[in-house]
Design a binder for these strands. Structure first.
Lengths: 215, 215
DNA sequence: CTTGATAGGTAACGCAAAGTACCTTATTGT
DNA sequence: ACAATAAGGTACTTTGCGTTACCTATCAAG
C-alpha cells in the first residue's frame, strides 16, 4: 500500500502546479475583466501566462468554470481591503464616514469596476457567479454595516425598523449616478478628496435628511 | 415633373423599408437584451425578423451601429413611461413618493433590467452607447428630480447645497442592493406593494434621516 | 417602356475561438 | 532505477459568426 501525498483538493502536485494555477487566475483576471466574459478568449489568457490551453482545461474544466473561480477569488480579495475595525468605538457619524469612505474607495477601484461590469453582464446566465459575487462582495458589506447599525439602534441612537434595509440605503447612496457614470466610462473615478466630500454628503442625508429643520 | 416622396432622412422609400427597419430594431432588442452585445448574433436577429443579413448592413452599417441605435431607442422609450406631471402641485413627501414609485417601476421592468446589463457590460468599449443610455435614461431622471428639488429648496422646504447631487442620492437609494440582486437574477423584481414600501422607506430617510430625534 | 438606382437576397469568405485527441515529460511509490 | 500516472504541450477539428461580393427585383423619372 502506497502513501500518496495530496494537496487540499486531492489532486497530485507537479512542478509548479499550484503556481501555474494561480498564474492562470491572474492572467484570466486581466483578460476577462478587460474584455468581459463573452469577449474574452482562453487563448488570450494562455498567451499571457505562457503554456497551453490544456492547462486551463485540466485545472478548471472550461471557460465558465475559470470565470467562476476568478470572480470568487476577485470578490473575496476586494473585501480584504475593507477594515471594519477602523470604525470600532467611534460615534455613528464617524463610523459611517469611515465605512463609507472605505466602500467608496473599493467602488472606484479599477478592478472592482471591471468586476462589476463583467458580473452584471453575465450574472443572469451564470447564477453561481452572480451569487459568489454578491455574497462575497456587496452582500457582505451591507450585512456588516447592518450589524453596526443594529448596535446603534439598540443604544437608541437611531430609529429604524430594519437595519439591513437601512444599511443598503446608505450604501445605495454611494452607488449613485456618479458611480454609474464611472462604471460606464463616462467620467473618471473620484479622487480621494472628492470621495470624502461625497461620503460626507451621503452621511449627512442619511443621518438627518434634507428637510429643513422644523424647530 | 413629378413630385418625389421622401421621408425625413431624405432616403427613398420602398416596399416596407421603414417597417423593416423597425422590425429589425424590435428583433434586435430581443436578441441583444437577452444575450448581451457580444453574445448576440446578427444571424439570430435576422432569423426572428425574416429577410437577410444584408438588410441590417444596409440600414444600420454593422453590429455596433445596430446596438447603438437599439440602445438609444430603448432608453428613450423607457423614459416615456415616466410622467412627471403626476407630481405637480404636491408637497415634497408626496412628490418624492410619486417620482420614486415611477422610477422603481422602471427599474424593475424586465426591459430596463436587460438594457442595464447590456449597457453596463459594453459601455466602456462603446462610449457613444454609454452616453446615449445615460443621457436619455438615468441622467434625465436625476436632472428632472433635481429641478423639482431646486424649487422646494428655493421655497425653503429643504436645505441642501446641491440639488443635483441630492437628487442622485435619492435615486441611488432606489438602486440599492435589492435592485442589484434583481439585476443579477438573484431575486425576483419587487411587486407593486413591495415597491411602495421600499419607496416610502427611502423617502423617510431622505427627508429626515435615521438619527433619533433630538428634542 | 426604358433606364438608372437601390433595397434586399444568396452564398461564400475568413477568422477566431472552444474544445479535444494524442503525445511528451515529469513525478512518485516500490 | 523503473513503472505507473497524470500534468502539460501540439496541433487539429468544428462551429459560429461578422462581413462582403455579387446578383435580383422593385420603383421613380422621362
Amino acid at each position: 500500500m502506497r502513501k500518496v501525498r495530496r494537496n487540499g483538493g486531492g489532486r497530485r502536485q507537479r512542478r509548479g502546479g499550484a503556481e501555474l494555477r494561480s498564474a492562470i487566475l491572474e492572467a484570466a483576471s486581466e483578460v476577462f475583466l478587460e474584455k468581459g466574459y463573452q469577449g474574452a478568449s482562453i487563448e488570450a489568457v494562455i498567451e499571457k501566462v505562457g503554456g497551453s490551453k490544456r492547462a486551463i482545461y485540466s485545472h478548471f474544466g472550461g471557460k465558465k468554470e475559470l470565470f467562476s473561480a476568478l470572480v470568487s477569488e476577485a470578490s473575496s480579495k476586494v473585501m480584504g481591503s475593507l477594515s471594519p475595525e477602523d470604525a470600532e468605538g467611534k460615534d455613528l457619524r464617524e463610523t459611517l464616514r469611515i465605512v463609507g469612505l472605505q466602500v467608496s474607495r473599493v467602488l472606484m477601484a479599477p478592478t472592482t469596476l471591471a468586476l462589476y461590469r463583467a458580473v452584471m453582464a453575465e450574472g443572469v446566465r451564470q447564477p453561481d457567479v452572480a451569487r459568489a459575487f454578491f455574497e462575497r462582495g456587496p452582500g457582505r458589506v451591507s450585512k456588516g454595516l447592518a450589524d453596526v447599525l443594529e448596535q446603534f439602534r439598540a443604544r437608541g441612537a437611531i430609529s429604524i425598523e430594519n437595519s439591513q434595509r437601512a444599511a443598503e440605503r446608505f450604501l445605495g447612496m454611494l452607488r449613485d449616478d456618479v458611480h454609474l457614470q464611472v462604471v460606464l466610462g463616462l467620467r473618471a473615478p473620484l479622487d480621494e478628496a472628492e470621495m470624502v466630500r461625497s461620503v460626507d454628503q451621503a452621511v449627512g442625508i442619511f443621518l438627518h435628511g434634507v428637510a429643513a429643520a422644523r424647530f
